[in-house]
Write a protein that binds this DNA or RNA. Structure first.
Length: 831
RNA sequence: GCCCAGGUGGUGGAAUUGGUAGACACGCUAGACUCAGGAUCUAGAGGUGGAAACACCGUGGAGGUUCGAGUCCUCUCCUGGGCACCA
């Protein structure tokens, strides 16, 4: 369309989307000799349609992809689909449509809607995790990791989601509910497969230090999640038996104040400790607790309950005899499943001791203040100075922990140690629509069901075709168990009859390494081409939601280490810089959802205002990392901005497109040139510091200046205006690419904006000829001066004093001091 | 309880290093154009007082440092998020 016609976004946008695709503008290695830049947004699950959250993340990534292209880099910017997963399977339960069919439809829709947004993707790199050419490498990784002892099968009380009807990982449980579907999560004793991510707990923690370009909140969330805790284990001998109770404590300094020990009811020693007198009480207690779910048990408001076992242990420090109790608040799977209780110096122990009438002993006194008042009204939990602790009296808490830790080790009674809150990553899912686990069970070769690995040559192990309605029913049984042709197989070892594993893998496995596969998506000789990975990794900028802080973002850091261990990559950390975008809420501030009737489909907005205006809106309304609300009036505002650019271009472009001016600019032309340089500087720096909203504001301000400028008449003025429009098209193209390319073309320029160089600015022209000086008297604003840039300090102060208002205030006073800030202000300090 | 973000007009948000608080935009008001509405353009606008000039007050609250504080320090309140009977 011609620029003098009315602005019609759909026409402009389709034209340029087609042209970009035809000319392969965004193809990886199009300029292979350039420095690489890998810009990536987290790959989406293809649900029905793109929503505003997607529009926002991809718009953020797109700004950088286009910006770095123009900065002369070889930009990789791929997109793909996290296509396995529950929603498609849940839909199949309802309507019997095979997940593969539905997923294919959804992928097509997603791709089409993304294209309508004009994102700068290299679609040649597209990948789909539900395709065998992708998931076969999940299976390959599984086999490699098994060889390294990083995968194992275990029986445990697992998190069973009552909605998804599958086991889920610890990371996916939020306050006792499923992170995905919000259903209640219950305990279920099951066998499952797990990755030994805890082997890397310390490394994952240490390396957080190096992630300086990750948001602090994500780093902090991971640190919390890993939950490193320094302390010591100590063995308490059980009186009259050969057993020891091993406790874990972070407060070894308080050990002389230990007046009882407590075991988790599930502790392996529990049964052997019970005395006849207490047997019935203990049995009832254990039964009661075993019926409670993890959620009930770990609810802090729940009553602390316990029971005396009848047995005693010996404190290895004081040689005292202390009773052994069981209690609901002691967790079997943290530390050693047993604690030493020091009621005087631990809030929880204090409450428990009061409740059951157990004794307290104060062994720590505040370092500075006077001694604690007895009896204690609350536990004193801070570090201090030891008391009532024999020869250790007077030591400080840290000193006691260190010295006693050494002593324990010498005596072989204990040892300083570190525990972590993080658990191994259980990845078995009792679902169909995921990667089959390449393992079989053979009664003859593998009686304990550890699983026998397939040979690498037997991969991929394909998901079998199924009668959807018969197999996917949502009853909580693994659907694959209902497919005899899949289940029944032969043992790779003995050739006898065997059964296949029927669980599939967590989809977080898929997203743990996809970023490496993008670089060579069709590669068949391994998960990816090593040379490509070496050249393009790590990801330079990774954009995605903060909700993945302790799930995907932790798993993919783990997996990167696995890939390094396997010699596949050289880097340890997958992503240098992380940007976590805020949520797009509805206009009422609530989560955008059909339920609240505040849902705005992007496609509708594209149809009404165009993709450029939508991109401008999501980037202008708030800084990328902050939450924002959709606003029907603000989108009108960005649309108006787009129309104003178009209208002014229509007015001038034809007249100025051939204008040439080599000499220095002057008069109104110079003002236009200065405004242009100012705009380039502002936008460039704003992009660099992730402040896209102010980048757009800078362009808006520039446009307002151009509106206010007189229409160009002379060749000089025309050349200045041409320069202004060229620059505007270049700096705004990361935000509104279609519109900018149209203007670029109307100006008679070749190709498209992303193939042009990012404009540079002249620092000398960024400063106005006249500087506004603020004149203060005692720090209060009293006058404004407009003086030439070259005015000296003396001249400025002189002019300031001459201002009538200032002169009046200085009348009869002594100027103690005169503060001069170049190009900014003068402040007279008077008394 | 611990950790992380935040708190600025009617609204979304600006304010690299302490230096004109409120850029830019929405909404609003007035005017122009129009038969009219919409669109568009022009102008106005933190609050209080005042016809105006102008004055005073103003970045959750209280102190402090400084010629000068949204910005730095101390304490405190509130909102959102993460972790947690974690020994």
């Amino acid at each position: 369309m011609a620029i003098h016609e009315q602005y019609e976004p759909s026409v402009v946008e389709q034209k340029w989307q087609k042209r970009w695709a035809e000319q392969h503008v965004f193809r990886m290695a199009r300029h292979a000799q350039r420095k690489k830049k890998y810009v990536l947004e987290m790959l989406p699950y293809p649900s029905g349609h793109l929503h505003m959250g997607h529009v926002r993340v991809y718009a953020i990534g797109d700004v950088y992809a286009r910006y770095y292209l123009m900065q002369g880099m070889d930009v990789v910017h791929p997109m793909g689909f996290d296509a396995f997963g529950l929603p498609a399977e849940n839909a199949a339960i309802k309507d019997g449509v095979h997940p593969a069919t539905r997923t294919a439809e959804n992928v097509a829709t997603f791709r089409q809607e993304m294209m309508a947004m004009g994102y700068a993707y290299d679609w040649q790199l597209e990948l789909n995790t539900s395709q065998a050419e992708y998931y076969r490498w999940n299976q390959w990784f599984f086999l490699q990791m098994r060889k390294k002892g990083l995968v194992y099968r275990r029986t445990a009380k697992l998190n069973w989601c009552t909605g998804c009807l599958t086991v889920i990982a610890n990371e996916q449980v939020v306050e006792g509910h499923c992170e995905r579907c919000d259903s209640v999560v219950v305990d279920k004793e099951m066998r499952e497969w797990a990755f030994r991510i805890t082997r890397y707990s310390q490394e994952l923690l240490d390396a957080l230090e190096g992630l300086s370009a990750w948001p602090e909140r994500i780093v902090a969330a991971q640190r919390n999640w890993i939950g490193r805790s320094e302390g010591a284990w100590v063995d308490f001998a059980v009186e009259g038996t050969p057993h020891n109770i091993r406790v874990f404590t972070t407060r070894l300094d308080t050990i002389c104040g230990c007046t009882y020990v407590v075991l988790a009811p599930e502790h392996p020693l529990t049964q052997s400790l019970i005395t006849a007198a207490q047997a019935e009480k203990v049995r009832q207690f254990v039964e009661k607790i075993s019926k409670q779910s993890k959620v009930e048990r770990t609810d802090e408001t729940a009553a602390k309950e316990g029971v005396f076992t009848g047995a005693y242990a010996q404190n290895p420090f004081t040689r005292e005899r202390v009773p052994i109790w069981l209690a609901n608040f002691v967790l079997a799977d943290y530390g050693t499943g047993a604690v030493m209780s020091v009621p005087a110096h631990d809030v929880r122990d204090f409450a428990f001791a009061k409740q059951y009438g157990l004794p307290l002993r104060t062994v720590i006194q505040p370092a500075t203040d006077k001694a604690l008042e007895e009896p204690l009204e609350t536990a004193f939990v801070e570090d201090g100075v030891l008391a009532n602790s024999g020869s250790a009296d007077g030591w400080t808490s840290p000193e006691a922990r260190r010295r006693w830790g050494e002593w324990l080790k010498e005596q072989k009674l204990g040892e300083p140690t570190v525990t972590y809150r993080q658990r191994d990553w259980g990845f078995s899912r009792q679902r169909y629509w995921g990667t089959p686990i390449p393992v079989v069970y053979c009664k003859a070769c593998d009686p304990t069901e550890e699983g026998i690995d397939l040979e690498a040559s037997q991969l991929p192990l394909l998901l079998p075709p199924i009668d959807t309605q018969a197999v996917i029913q949502g009853h909580g049984e693994p659907p694959l168990a209902k497919v005899p042709s899949f289940v029944n197989t032969t043992c790779p070892k003995c050739g006898g009859p065997a059964r296949r594993e029927v669980d599939t893998m967590d989809t977080f496995v898929d997203s743990s390494w996809y970023y490496a596969r993008y670089l060579s998506p069709g590669f068949e000789g391994g998960p990816f081409e090593l040379a490509k990975a070496q050249h393009y990794l790590p990801i330079d900028i990774y954009v995605g939601g903060p909700e993945h802080a302790t799930m995907h973002l932790l798993y993919f850091r783990f997996w990167c280490r696995i890939m390094k261990l396997l010699g596949l990559v050289e880097v340890e950390e997958p992503a240098k810089r992380l940007i976590t975008q805020g949520i797009v809420n509805g206009s009422d501030g609530r989560k955008m959802s059909k339920r609240w009737g505040n849902f705005v489909p992007p496609l509708e907005i594209i149809g009404k205002y165009g993709a450029d205006s939508l991109r401008l809106f999501v980037l202008f309304a708030a800084p990328p990392e902050r939450d924002m609300n959709w606003n029907n009036e603000q989108i009108e505002g960005t649309y108006r901005f787009a129309k104003r650019i178009w209208a002014l271009a229509a007015l001038h472009v034809e007249k100025v497109k051939g204008a040439q001016w080599t000499g220095p600019f002057s008069g109104t032309a110079l003002e236009v040139v200065r405004a242009t340089h100012k705009c380039i500087k502002r936008v460039t720096q704003a992009i660099e510091r992730l402040s896209f909203n102010t980048a757009i504001a800078g362009a808006m301000e520039f446009l307002n200046t151009l509106y206010a400028a007189p229409a160009p008449h002379t060749e000089e003025e025309k050349a200045a205006m041409r320069f202004a429009f060229k620059s505007l098209a270049l700096v705004l193209t990361p935000f509104a690419p279609h519109l900018c390319d149209e203007i670029w073309e109307a100006l008679g320029e070749e190709g498209c904006t992303v193939e042009a160089a990012w404009p540079s600015f002249d620092e000398a022209l960024v400063v106005d000829a006249l500087i506004t000086y603020v004149v203060q008297v005692n720090g209060k604003l009293r006058a404004e001066l407009h003086l030439p840039v070259e005015a000296t300090e003396e001249a400025v102060c002189e002019a300031a004093r001459a201002e009538p208002k200032v002169a009046a205030l200085l009348q009869g006073k002594t100027v103690k001091k005169c503060i001069f800030v170049p190009k900014r202000l003068v402040n007279f300090v008077v008394v």
